[in-house]
Computed example of a mutant assay.
Amino acid sequence: MELMNKVVVVTGAGSGIGAATATLMAAHGAKVMVADINLKSAQKVADDITKMGGEAVPFQVNVTQFNEVESLIVEVVKNQGSLDVMVNNAGIGGKNQKRTAEHTLEDWHNVIAVNQTGVFYCMKVALGQMMEQGYGNIVNIASLAGLKPSGNNLSYSASKFAVVGMTKSAALEYGRKNIRINAVCPGYTQSPLLDQLLSSRSEMRDRLRGKIPMDRFGEATEIAEAVVWLASDKSKYITGQTITLDGGISL
């Protein structure tokens, strides 16, 4: 995948798609900065990568805090010399599944802060460094909920539509600067976020799975494969695009 010795930052890398992406990046020879709000989780993923013979460094970062994002990138560049790839994966879902009129203010503010503002902060800082070094690659983790309506899920849907929009707008702005920016849009994928959704109602698992033509949920490793491809030179003529990995549910 031509990722050997590339310096990669993955946010939300302590579990789920982020952990799978960090692990696969390292397997392809990248130097992976495992960033997560939970340092213990980041450390475990980094340790697992190291045991496999890969190179990984854990970092604690809250993407809703601009100064923490800025400090992360400064530290990475100081120690590694560059920032080749930024994977903006950190994300949360709302605690409640409610219609818009009943949507809680807490869910709105928390989800938008992580999923939308956090991605903006990471893109802003990463792009500053990439402009300085003359190249770079950003992969944002959006969602199928950012491409089609998602009921009882307003803040999450709004945030993921925003990620798709930010991806395309920034790709347009930086295409001539040797910086590529793309997104992946997973459908229902095995992860802590899906577990949270499935626990909201007893019948939710069968209900959601029944809508998927492939009759199963996605695996985090399957999403990671797409992220790694976008991060590599194998996709060097692609920018501003969204890749949907949803088992056919969008059909």
Rank of each mutant, 00 (worst) to 15 (best):
Y188I: 01
E75T: 15
L208W: 02
V76E: 02
D47I: 09
V57H: 04
G93R: 06
P58R: 05
D233I: 02
E132Q: 15
Y237S: 02
S82W: 00
G14L: 09
E219L: 13
L251F: 11
G187D: 01
T11P: 10
V184G: 04
G12W: 12
I17E: 02
G94C: 10
I49V: 13
G118K: 06
G151Q: 05
E173D: 15
V163Y: 07
A13S: 12
M130G: 11
A170L: 12
R207Q: 10
I112L: 15
K160T: 10
E106Y: 07
Y121W: 12
Q97K: 12
N140S: 12
K98G: 01
G16R: 06
Y156V: 05
V74N: 13
H109E: 15
D47G: 00
G81K: 11
A171I: 11
I17L: 11
I243E: 00
E106K: 14
I73L: 12
I181M: 06
G53L: 05
G134S: 11
M123Q: 13
Q80M: 08
F59Q: 02
V69R: 02
H109R: 13
T104H: 09
G247H: 08
P192S: 09
K177I: 05
L127I: 15
V228R: 06
V87A: 02
Q190D: 14
D47Q: 13
D84Q: 07
A27D: 05
L208S: 02
L154A: 14
G240Q: 07
G118W: 06
T242I: 04
Q196Y: 00
V9H: 08
D84K: 07
A27T: 08
K234V: 06
P192A: 07
K236W: 01
G94W: 08
L230D: 04
K95S: 14
V85I: 15
V119R: 03
M25K: 01
A183Q: 01
G53I: 07
V45C: 03
T244I: 08
Y121I: 01
I73W: 03
A22N: 04
K51Y: 01
T242V: 12
V74G: 00
N88M: 08
S202T: 14
G151E: 05
Q80E: 13
N89M: 10
A224P: 02
A19R: 15
V7W: 01
L83K: 00
S159W: 11
Q190A: 10
Y121G: 00
A145C: 14
T23G: 04
W229G: 03
G146V: 04
E132F: 03
P192G: 04
G134H: 09
Q241F: 00
H109Q: 15
S82G: 01
G81R: 09
I141Y: 01
A183T: 08
G14K: 09
W108F: 15
S159H: 11
L83F: 03
K211V: 00
M214F: 10
S71P: 01
Y237A: 03
V63M: 07
G93E: 03
D246E: 09
V7G: 02
F120Y: 15
D47N: 13
M52L: 13
V32D: 02
V228W: 07
I138V: 15
V57A: 00
T239G: 08
